[in-house]
């Protein structure tokens, strides 16, 4: 069973409100939803973002959208008006999430361009 980064099977977009980050993760193919649901837990996301010391990570499941919403608290250095970093909004962090790997349960079509 192949192990692949989320980047191959899902897309992501980050948004901010103050010091809180959300990253929406959308399966390219609805068939991947269960695989992601089983493996990309809030704990694994917290581990991936450990250097930013999230105080809380919550995963919201959206089965009708074949998507998940991850909400990470206190990872933006105080937010866009306080951060010393180049990316105060945390917009680039969607691609950090997409580095998380998953083990595929079944064969899949590479580079599927959505449903």
């Amino acid at each position: 069973m192949p192990t692949v980064p989320l980047h191959e099977i899902a897309t992501a977009r980050a948004g901010d409100k103050g010091n809180r980050l959300n990253i929406a993760l959308v399966c390219r193919d609805p068939a991947y939803y269960e695989t992601v649901a089983a493996q990309v837990t809030a704990d694994r996301v917290a581990e991936k973002f450990a250097a930013r010391r999230p105080s809380r990570v919550v995963r919201y499941d959206l089965p009708k959208l074949f998507a998940f919403n991850f909400v990470l608290d206190d990872v933006l250095e105080g937010g866009v008006n306080a951060s010393l970093g180049l990316d105060g909004h945390g917009k680039s962090l969607s691609f950090l999430l997409l580095e998380i790997t998953v083990t595929m349960q079944q064969s899949r079509t590479r580079g599927a361009q959505g449903a």
């Binding site: 409100k17 809180r20 929406a24 959308v26 390219r28 959208l65 909400v71 449903a115």
Partner: peptide
Amino acid sequence: VDRLTVTEQLLYEIHDPA
């Protein structure tokens, strides 16, 4: 405009989807 472009924006800057 397709499922992926719309779903990414649908969840943009949303916290609790409910």
